[in-house]
């Protein structure tokens, strides 16, 4: 099967230098991803995918940097294991977005499903709207590698469960008003590293976490991430509208959450 040779003459694939345009209609994920790996090997660094409809693992297994624009609805595990690639989704992402990603960027102009950023090791995920359950569970961190997730809307229960590092920022915006739209339960349960910042919601925190107000140092960090968020989504809002004492900070109260339970 040579997909490229069959798609190019029909205008479904257009390659111009290091830019490619691809109509993903009817392509199985295996075909789509193999084609993207091939394009990457041929030096293509920018791919725009149209009519994406449920194809899984977009971006997985690419060996070189690539900017991927996804138009439509990508399937589960978007950007799983990606290592420096950048993915921009114009639509909603499904479950497992950025699953175990090592480095890179995922920007979702919409919402993401469950377990986004599971075991994330580096890079950044920006979600314009909401995130499902178990956002950023088991995120990792070591040395200079620190994964970051910013969610504009609300997040589901168990966010940051087992978190070992990294940062999750949930802004709690609804449309363009500054309303609280979420109240996740069991936030950070079992976390033993990293930090979660949340805005304007009732915190139902897990065991073994500290819930505190934010310091100047935290606000500096939040401000720069909020600016990034606004820039990614071209939102016409002023950062200062959000930077107030509304944020709370969730951190582990112990690095040994299970000490003493077993002997």
């Amino acid at each position: 099967m040579d997909l490229r040779e069959s798609l190019e003459p029909r205008g479904r694939l257009q390659v111009d230098g290091n830019v490619a345009l691809l109509d993903a209609t009817g392509l199985h994920y295996r075909e789509l991803n193999a084609l993207m790996r091939r394009l990457s090997a041929e030096g293509v660094e920018n791919v725009e995918l149209h009519n994406v409809n449920g194809q899984r693992y977009i971006g997985t297994g690419l060996k070189r940097p690539m900017n991927i624009i996804v138009r439509g609805t990508p399937g589960n595990d978007l950007g799983m294991f990606i290592n420096g690639q950048r993915i921009f989704v114009y639509g909603n992402a499904q479950d497992g977005c950025g699953n175990t990603m090592n480095d890179g960027l995922i920007v979702v102009h919409g919402s993401v499903g469950d377990v986004a950023g599971y075991a994330m090791r580096g890079g950044r995920i920006f979600v314009r709207d909401d995130a499902g359950f178990r956002l950023g569970i088991h995120m990792k961190e070591y040395g200079g590698k620190k994964p970051i997730i910013v969610v504009g809307g609300g997040a589901g229960d168990f966010l940051g469960e087992y978190m070992a590092g990294g940062l999750i920022l949930v802004l709690g915006l609804k449309e363009e008003k500054n309303e609280c739209v979420h109240s996740p339960k069991f936030v950070g349960v079992g976390m033993h590293g990293g930090v979660i910042y949340m805005r304007g919601c009732t915190i139902h925190a897990g065991k073994n976490v500290l819930v505190e107000g934010v310091e100047d140092e935290d606000l500096k960090l939040i401000r720069s991430l909020v600016e990034d968020y606004f820039n990614h989504f071209n939102l016409d809002l002023r950062v200062n509208d959000f930077i107030s004492d509304e944020f709370v900070k969730v951190t582990p109260s112990t690095s040994r959450p299970y000490m003493g339970l077993y002997r």
């Binding site: 377990v115 569970i137 088991h138 961190e141 070992a164 690095s255 040994r256 959450p257 299970y258 000490m259």
Partner: peptide
């Protein structure tokens, strides 16, 4: 081990009971 596993040194390394995906 903290380096290989990417978790803070001296913390309990937890594997969740299920794969949550």
């Amino acid at each position: 081990i903290a380096m290989v596993r990417m978790i803070p040194k001296g913390t309990d390394a937890l594997s969740p009971a299920p794969h949550h995906d």
